[in-house]
Measured scan of single mutants.
Amino acid sequence: LVRYRTISKIPQITLNFVDLKGDPFLASPTSDREIIAPKIKERTHNVTEKVTQVLSLGADVLPEYKLQAPRIHRWTILHYSPFKAVWDWLILLLVIYTAVFTPYSAAFLLKETEEGPPATECGYACQPLAVVDLIVDIMFIVDILINFRTTYVNANEEVVSHPGRIAVHYFKGWFLIDMVAAIPFDLLIFGSGSEELIGLLKTARLLRLVRVARKLDRYSEYGAAVLFLLMCTFALIAHWLACIWYAIGNMEQPHMDSRIGWLHNLGDQIGKPYNSSGLGGPSIKDKYVTALYFTFSSLTSVGFGNVSPNTNSEKIFSICVMLIGSLMYASIFGNVSAIIQRLYSGTARYHTQMLRVREFIRFHQIPNPLRQRLEEYFQHAWSYTNGIDMNAVLKGFPECLQADICLHLNRSLLQHCKPFRGATKGCLRALAMKFKTTHAPPGDTLVHAGDLLTALYFISRGSIEILRGDVVVAILGKNDIFGEPLNLYARPGKSNGDVRALTYCDLHKIHR
């Protein structure tokens, strides 16, 4: 019993810090008490220290592992850092350059016999395009090294910054494609005289377009951006097909006994025919423009016929181009109408809503002055909100995010209106959640004399007048207030005048 009563005193000691020596009952000389009392004092002292730490809000209350900052290894790049964003855009520009100039170089340097010394005699450094290609190869190699040090988000939505895990993730992902696209074939085969082989191998750079397509997928929600990307894709495919079309004609031209190829026909049409040795002929500019003209006309199913396939190889390629053109029509131009419709969806919704308003007016036989006010209010409210119901949009977000959005939407009023000066951010967040926005066209009466005042109004834009009878008592403008002081009276009061809008007004109100 003594032991039980001794232990039962522990909660009292913990909360009230009572010393055991003052209790005459606990001072009985028993061996059990002498053993338990020192333990009680020690526990009391420890609990006292913990309570003191909690009340003082000291940093040592938290466990040590929670006080440590997340460790980022040296030379690790955050995937959302500004440097990584700028670097990704730079790589994107280099990939676009590669997609345009690599097929052009591979096709127009394929057994090209233009006048001038061969590239091997001039030297590697004197070729501007080769120098640019070398810079692109170096940048792609540097990009691989950067990807080995860039964080990523795993399946659990955690940012991984450990170098080993980053390397394994990159090896399992895009490393092989990036490595093949970054191989400097110019340096590996330079001086061997195989410019045709170098041009063909350099087309491996186009593998990076797969990554670019995935990154550009984030802009699919913007109709104008999608339309622009589709047109660029169409032009890029036409450019690639033009390079292939020229390569076919250029390879067949020296081996044909009869002059029936499209390059021969082009030379005869523009007065620059090929001679018996295969030299001469149109310039590279004429060849490229004509090839691009043929691919565009074939892809769009126009086909004027002034550039036509004559050999079997050219006919087979033309059939493939027609098939590609039909697929592009289905996948690209078939979506253009939907994209344009999405661009004008706001206008369509406006006309639909206006039609419903006019049908309501016609069905209920609203008189002319009231009908005009109804239409003007709808037009003004639509121009202010673009038909978007803010309350319906915010309803799907958590309250903390709703408060931040409301604070942002009402920031101008909260910053410049005098009653809100000096208020804490928590108070402003709470008030912003209570605001209701209303609009009024010129001549609209917001409050009639004798109406119950259940709200306090803040003028965000425009001006109003307060009338008693036919006498203008006051004219209020931006950041002015009218209405009933909230919670100042037990019952809502009545208006002693009319409140009429002089201009288009936007008002925020808080109800009782």
Rank of each mutant, 00 (worst) to 15 (best):
E64P: 14
K66S: 13
A69I: 08
P70V: 06
P70Q: 03
R71L: 15
R71I: 14
H73L: 05
H73T: 11
W75D: 01
W75S: 04
T76E: 01
I77A: 01
L78W: 06
H79I: 01
Y80E: 04
F83Y: 15
V86L: 15
D88C: 02
W89A: 03
L90C: 07
L94G: 10
L94S: 13
I96D: 01
Y97W: 05
T98E: 03
V100N: 01
F101P: 01
F101G: 01
T102W: 05
Y104Q: 01
S105T: 08
A106M: 08
A106K: 01
F108T: 01
F108D: 01
K111N: 04
T113L: 03
E115V: 14
E115A: 13
G116Y: 07
G116H: 11
P117V: 06
P118A: 07
P118I: 05
A119T: 04
C122G: 01
C122Y: 01
G123C: 01
Y124T: 03
C126M: 01
C126P: 01
P128E: 03
P128S: 05
P128T: 14
A130E: 07
L134K: 05
V136T: 06
D137Y: 01
I138P: 01
F140G: 01
V142G: 05
V142K: 02
V142N: 01
V142R: 01
I146H: 01
I146S: 01
T150I: 01
N154T: 11
N154W: 03
N154D: 12
A155G: 14
E158Y: 04
V159M: 01
V160W: 01
H162P: 01
H162D: 12
R165S: 08
I166V: 05
A167Q: 01
V168F: 12
V168E: 05
H169S: 05
Y170L: 01
F171H: 01
F171T: 05
G173H: 13
W174L: 05
F175T: 01
F175H: 01
L176E: 01
L176K: 04
I177P: 08
M179N: 01
M179R: 01
A181S: 11
P184M: 01
D186W: 10
L187W: 09
L188S: 10
F190Q: 12
G191E: 06
S192V: 07
S192G: 10
S192T: 08
S194A: 10
S194I: 10
E195N: 07
E195A: 15
E196G: 15
E196I: 11
I198L: 13
L200E: 02
L201H: 01
L201S: 01
K202E: 01
T203Y: 01
L209Y: 01
L209E: 01
R211Q: 09
A213I: 05
K215F: 03
L216V: 14
Y219Q: 08
G223M: 03
A225L: 03
V226W: 09
L227T: 04
L227G: 01
F228N: 01
F228Y: 01
L230P: 03
C232Q: 01
A235M: 09
A235S: 14
A235R: 01
L236V: 04
A238Q: 01
I244A: 05
W245M: 01
Y246W: 01
G249R: 01
N250R: 14
M251I: 08
E252D: 01
Q253H: 03
Q253W: 06
Q253R: 15
P254V: 14
S258V: 09
S258H: 13
I260V: 10
I260Q: 04
I260P: 03
W262D: 04
L263K: 02
H264P: 01
L266E: 01
G267V: 03
D268M: 13
Q269G: 01
G271I: 01
K272G: 01
S276Q: 11
S277C: 04
S283V: 01
S283L: 01
S283K: 01
I284S: 01
I284H: 01
K285R: 13
K287I: 04
K287G: 01
T290M: 01
T290D: 01
L292N: 01
L292V: 01
L292R: 01
S297Y: 01
S297L: 01
S297V: 01
S298W: 01
L299R: 01
S301L: 10
G303E: 01
F304P: 04
F304N: 01
F304M: 04
N306S: 01
N306L: 01
V307W: 01
S308P: 01
S308V: 04
P309K: 01
T311A: 01
S313I: 14
S313V: 14
V321T: 02
L323G: 03
I324F: 08
S326E: 04
L327I: 05
L327C: 03
M328W: 03
Y329M: 08
I332P: 03
N335T: 03
V336H: 02
S337N: 15
S337F: 01
A338Y: 09
I339Q: 04
I339R: 03
I339K: 01
I339A: 03
Q341W: 06
L343V: 07
L343C: 09
Y344T: 07
T347S: 10
T347G: 10
T347I: 04
Y350Q: 07
H351Q: 03
R356A: 09
R356P: 03
V357D: 01
E359M: 03
E359Q: 10
E359G: 03
R362E: 04
F363L: 11
F363P: 01
Q365S: 09
Q365D: 10
Q365N: 03
I366N: 01
P367I: 01
P367R: 08
P367T: 05
P367V: 03
Q372C: 06
Q372S: 13
R373Y: 04
R373K: 13
E375F: 09
F378W: 11
Q379W: 04
Q379E: 07
H380Q: 05
S383N: 10
Y384D: 11
N386Q: 14
M390F: 07
N391S: 08
A392V: 08
K395N: 05
G396D: 15
F397A: 03
P398L: 01
C400R: 07
L401V: 10
A403R: 04
A403M: 05
D404K: 01
C406T: 04
C406A: 14
H408T: 01
L409I: 09
N410P: 03
L413C: 07
K418R: 07
P419A: 09
P419Y: 15
P419E: 08
F420H: 03
F420R: 03
G422Q: 13
G422K: 12
T424V: 03
K425T: 15
G426I: 01
G426Q: 04
G426W: 01
R429P: 01
R429Y: 03
L431F: 07
M433N: 01
F435N: 03
K436M: 11
T438S: 11
P441L: 10
P441W: 09
P441Y: 04
P442N: 02
L446W: 01
L446Q: 01
V447K: 01
H448L: 06
H448N: 14
